[in-house]
């Protein structure tokens, strides 16, 4: 993986609450190459968003990056101070947050928010700015962009707000885009339009992308590699073919089985029994052990990574045979 320009090593992000320590992200390591889409999937609460926010330097009290390294083009991001990180954000790395309201200010018109995003990093005359904003909105399929620029966020539908946030992320031409559930609120035709636009930037400008989602179907059609997370830890990572066609981890297999299109309509969906363990009370061993049908005594011990191919890595002592 010499092409990788972005790298995360042994990242740990924990929240120190009064009730105890929530270990949201534990020993996560991955990289992203130019022109590549890395998909991250995993159960709700598995630490996908916290991973993205750690990269953005947006973990607030009582949370903290406890250890690990995050580097972009060889520069270590965890060592940057607040002001330096602010310059990185939006400019070199942009994130489309799961909740568009995290990015959009409800009291400001869309236009002013977009101007502010550009103005924070570049010195551009107003009419050039205006042109750029309209182009950006059009690219994500927002009709009547001139008029929508004047709108307040609450005057738009959920999916339109989501598209505005994507437009803002693309505005400054970052090297890396982290998109957290970016298109789940959109119909498939608009979704295809947005993916087409993003894919174009990825291919033309050698952008790297981290696409966080629970939508395995879209991911299978879009991502180059897929990383599977559970309870803050990595379970399996590999090329899309290796994960979708040849998943070896019992958790990945279960995830794939519960996709509606793989089930008979009207019948109960296959679901994974039980719930994710509390992130405050994790043992040493495999976090999936309590819900796994292949579990044995040794699963209570720490699970080392097994390298199955150059690209395929797995954390499981009883993987499926291929």
């Amino acid at each position: 993986m010499s092409k990788a320009f972005f790298q995360v090593d042994d990242l740990n992000t924990w929240f120190f609450t009064r009730k105890g320590t929530i270990k949201s992200v534990r020993d996560i390591s991955f990289d992203v190459s130019r022109g590549e889409v890395l998909g991250i999937v995993g159960e709700s609460g598995s630490g996908k968003s916290v991973t993205g926010m750690s990269i953005m330097g947006q973990i607030d009290e009582p949370g903290r990056i406890v250890s690990g390294s995050i580097s972009l083009n060889g520069e270590e991001l965890t060592k940057l101070d607040f002001e330096e990180m602010r310059r990185y954000r939006g400019n070199r790395i942009a994130m489309v947050f799961q909740n568009p309201l995290m990015t959009l200010n409800p009291l400001m018109r869309v236009r002013d928010q977009m101007y502010e995003a550009i103005g924070a990093h570049e010195d551009v005359p107003r009419n050039a700015m205006h042109k750029r904003c309209i182009e950006a909105l059009r690219a994500v399929g927002i009709p009547s962009p001139e008029e929508r620029l004047n709108a307040y966020p609450h005057e738009m539908s959920g999916g339109m707000r989501q598209r505005v946030v994507i437009a803002i992320a693309l505005l400054l031409g970052p090297d890396l885009i982290i998109a957290d559930e970016p298109t789940t609120a959109l119909d498939v035709t608009i979704q295809a339009q947005i993916i087409y636009q993003i894919r174009r930037q990825i291919d033309e400008r050698g952008l790297g992308m981290i696409w966080i989602t629970h939508d395995l179907s879209t991911l299978s059609e879009l991502a180059d590699r897929i990383m599977v997370m559970y309870a803050g830890a990595m379970m399996e990572i590999g090329t899309t073919e290796e994960i979708i066609g040849g998943a070896r981890h019992p958790y990945t297999r279960k995830l794939l089985d519960s996709v509606p299109s793989r089930n008979v309509p009207g019948e109960k969906l296959k679901q994974i029994p039980g719930n994710m363990p509390s992130l405050m009370a994790l043992g040493e061993g495999c976090p999936f052990a309590s819900r796994c049908e292949r579990v044995t005594e040794i699963c209570r011990e720490p699970v080392p990574a097994t390298q199955l191919s150059d690209t395929h890595r797995i954390w499981c002592l009883h993987p499926f045979e291929n």
């Binding site: 979704q191 295809a192 299109s261 793989r262």
Partner: peptide
């Protein structure tokens, strides 16, 4: 346009015509 679990990378296409 319904996404399906597949191992084929799909070619995403922009919307044809003007989005009303």
């Amino acid at each position: 346009g319904m996404p399906k679990i597949s191992m084929q990378r799909r070619k995403f296409m922009p919307i044809q015509g003007e989005i009303p």
